[in-house]
């Protein structure tokens, strides 16, 4: 357990050192959300109707943006090869990376959501549901993203191909994420979303570790 904690600390320190990354991510999230009104017009009822979808698309794109730093720096400086020799199994290391990735890329988005909610004319009720659905759904996005990043880590221009792989897998997250905000059966959607996140989180460390160990052979 202490090795796992050390891994968590290392990852957290590394990703907070370049503090600009988190800020860029949040800015990207807000800009994607804020640019939509310019495209569809400033009609408040229309904006309120499509706001959940916009927030989720913005969160999805922002999570894709942060994927590069999940494994690539460690692959490039050889740390990934060293980590494979560690006593801690590779899947636990990937799990630590995944937790930290969620902390530094999804939590800031959650904190920035109120800004988007105001800009997109959301009412208080759907704002609350948006927060819950983002909190429950982003772990699944991070997990699928980790699988995509692990599969493409040994490709030189993998950053381009990872989103193509991740997007189809993320469709259920978007469906249930938006569904848990807008649909009449939102409680069912919320439960599906939570189940999806749990399943993806359980699966992703093993799949990603398998892909990484095949890539580093």
């Amino acid at each position: 357990m202490s090795a796992f904690a050390a891994m968590l600390r290392r990852e957290l320190r590394l990703s907070l050192r370049g503090g600009g990354d988190v800020l860029t991510l949040v800015l990207f999230f807000i800009i994607v959300g804020a640019i939509v009104p310019f495209a569809v017009g400033p009609d408040r009822t229309l904006l309120a109707a499509i706001a959940p979808g916009i927030v989720w698309i913005a969160a999805f794109l922002a999570m894709l943006l942060g994927l590069e730093r999940l494994f690539r720096p460690d692959h490039e400086d050889g740390a990934l090869v060293l980590l494979r020799q560690a006593e801690l199994p590779l899947s636990a290391i990937v799990a630590a990376k995944l937790i930290v990735h969620w902390l530094v890329s999804a939590v800031p988005l959650l904190l920035a959501t109120p800004v988007l909610a105001v800009l997109l004319a959301m009412d208080l009720d759907s704002f609350g549901r948006t927060m819950i659905s983002l909190a429950l759904g982003t772990p699944a996005l991070a997990a699928f993203g980790a699988i995509g990043a692990a599969v493409t880590v040994s490709i030189r221009r993998g950053g381009l191909i990872a989103p193509i792989l991740i997007a189809p897998l993320s469709i259920p997250v978007l469906i249930f994420g938006v569904g848990s905000i807008t649909s009449p059966q939102s409680s069912a959607a919320t439960l599906f979303l939570a189940a999806l996140s749990l399943m993806a989180l359980a699966l992703a460390p093993f799949a990603a570790a398998l892909a990484i160990s095949s890539a580093e052979d």
Binding site: I175, F192, A207, S214, D217
Partner: peptide, 30 residues
């Protein structure tokens, strides 16, 4: 090397396809 990595992704996709089918059915009947 590609084969083993792509095999991992193929299997992840195979697990996901029923989930995608289910979610899309839920979404379209809604």
């Amino acid at each position: 090397r590609a084969a083993r990595i792509i095999a991992v992704f193929t299997l992840v996709g195979a697990i996901n396809i029923p989930i995608i089918k289910f979610s899309v059915d839920w979404w379209s009947t809604l």
